[in-house]
Design a protein around this nucleic acid. Structure first.
Length: 269
DNA sequence: CGCCAGGACGCCC
DNA sequence: GGGCGTCATGGC
């Protein structure tokens, strides 16, 4: 990864990164594609920081109106620029299916998202489709002035007061998560560094958090790359390509491999 | 219209 | 432990 500062922007060169593929592969739900003169442009937020980011025709990335300090302190980490995805894909490509999946969308990276936002987002995701998940999260943020509400804010709500979300049976799960997190009965910071099995068990104490959602929080919100969420698409991948199980050599980065497989299976047709 | 969606839970055996 | 119906809502 190389970068330089130009006027008020930071320009990044990173070949293992595609904006469309990374921001629209089902790991994050709050990035919006906007019109621009570039190949593509997105606006979104991480915690309380807003970002407008473009990918130019030559592949470079423009972090609009971002100082070098903010880039290094915040966005470098969010986009996981410290990880060498060429090396990861080289390892993955020893497996035939994974090789195809990595070739299909070379520019997917695993974002380092906020654990609380991930927890709520993936509670909402259950038995739901991606366009509708985005809609519910958008209504939630709009309701709080276009920020993602904290656990403290949401702990004031009830399933009835959340009716405007039209999130169905998931509303009471959101409330339980908000109460447990705001009371520190669920401590997301502590969980993020627990042994994996213990972390899973701790997350699953929240009503409405089962194996799949817990795994998503660990992977997307805590960057535990060995976590491996299994949804209906990954079930199809496993049934079709891995009847004897996944290759052992992906273990410590199974979650990242999962992201290539998920996107491949969901969009190839 | 019917089928499905980045599932979890309770109940049954 | 595994199988099955149920839960809201709406995208396609």
């Amino acid at each position: 990864m190389d970068y330089y500062v130009k006027n008020n922007d930071v320009i990044v060169n990173e070949k293992d990164f595609d904006l469309d593929e990374t921001l629209d592969c089902g790991q994050a739900f709050r990035w919006k594609k906007t019109e621009s003169d570039y190949k593509c442009t997105y606006t979104g937020k991480f915690l309380n920081s807003q970002l407008k980011i473009s990918q130019a025709e030559n592949g470079d990335f423009i972090f609009h109106d971002v100082s070098e300090k903010e880039f290094l302190d915040k966005w470098f980490n969010y986009f996981d620029f410290g990880t060498d995805y060429s090396e990861l894909k080289k390892i993955f490509s020893e497996d035939e299916t994974l090789s195809k999946a990595c070739e299909y969308a070379k520019g997917i990276r695993l974002l380092r998202q906020d654990s609380w936002e991930c927890l709520v987002s993936f509670i909402i995701s259950q038995n739901n489709n991606i366009p509708r998940i985005k809609g519910i999260i958008e209504r939630l943020c709009e309701h709080y002035g276009n920020i993602f509400p904290t656990a403290e804010m949401l702990s004031e709500e009830s399933p009835e007061s959340l009716a405007y979300l039209r999130s169905g049976f998931r509303a009471r799960y959101i409330c339980d998560a908000s109460q447990k997190v705001s009371k520190k009965e669920t401590d997301l910071i502590k969980i993020s560094s627990m042994p994996l099995e213990q972390a899973r068990a701790e997350l699953k104490k929240i009503i409405g958090v089962g194996d799949k959602v817990a795994e998503c929080v660990l992977l997307y919100g805590m960057h535990r790359t060995e976590a491996f969420p299994v949804d209906v698409w990954i079930k199809r991948v496993l049934a079709e390509y891995y009847p004897n199980g996944l290759p052992k050599f992906i273990k410590e980065n199974a979650g990242i491999a999962q992201q290539y497989l998920f996107h491949y299976m969901r969009t190839k047709n």
